[in-house]
Amino acid sequence: METQNEVLLKVDNLVKHFPIYRGVFQRQVGAVHAVDGISFDVYKGETLGLVGESGCGKSTAGRTILQLYKPTSGSVDFQGVDLATLKGEELRHMRKKIQMIFQDPYASLNPRMTVGDIIGEPLMVHNVATPKEIEERVADLLNKVNLNPAFASRYPHEFSGGQRQRIGIARALALQPDFIVCDEPISALDVSIQAQVVNLLEDLQAQFGLTYLFIAHDLSMVRHISTRVAVMYLGIIVELADRKTLYTNPLHPYSQALLSAVPVADPVVEEKRKRVILEGDVPSPVNPPSGCRFRTRCPIAKPGVCDASKPEFREVDPGHFVACHLV
């Protein structure tokens, strides 16, 4: 469906393994397969939701795309440049265009810097403005995220979680990026504040033509904001579709299970909602199951098929990708 849309970011077979070292000689004894070959496109101006249980590799995926972790393999094509091949200064310059918003508003602001210094630092380190201009830009940015510009001289500890998250958003906006990875930006906030922050992010997206990769650990959080949704399980993407399709017609058994946990507003539908309870724990990412990664918990797994080979991530309908042998 999205053929006419411009691709902003193309992730191709991205892999990130964290080696595990043991013993006196620090020999590598294995690796955490945090991200194990994910591919997707992000279209300009959209919000791609990335959903999965805790530990499935969402943050690692986001950080590897941003080159905060060096990819084990694969490429991240951003506006025609493979970020994975950039180094040093080139990469530093690229950072003007790609930003990130963090999950924990208490951990993501340097407690020793004033709000003004935090928001102004990106401008300062890239030499794009004079100190006077930075001051003005900071005031402007604080306004944009609905904070009082007079707060620039305050320290982060003087603010609430929601306000801190706005400060983090202002920092991400400072360099006027094209693309922002939002790593569970609302998970740590009070429910009453969550909607405010989501609304703010949507406003800013409309105002500046931003593109988001929006990470969340359940489907209800991204329902409102996403254009398309990718479902991740144990380091791989199992299903990717536009929002409507994913919420009404999920094809992968894991997406179905996740969706069955989301309450529905309509009481009649809610009444009939069938909950799929997943058995067992998520397997360790150090030794992921052979064949289909989901087979140890899949309610419809077929022996001899699902453990034999990895299901291919294929396009079953236009724009609808699934990795399952039985679809």
Binding site: S108, R112, E121, H126, A172
Partner: peptide, 26 residues
């Protein structure tokens, strides 16, 4: 390993400044 150090890298702060402005003072 704190997020604010990661955040500084995200906005493109150079290593030396990260060390002296973000890590050592904290």
């Amino acid at each position: 390993e704190r997020d604010y150090v990661l955040a500084a890298r995200v906005v493109g702060v150079k290593d030396s400044r990260i060390l002296f402005r973000h890590i050592i003072p904290n």
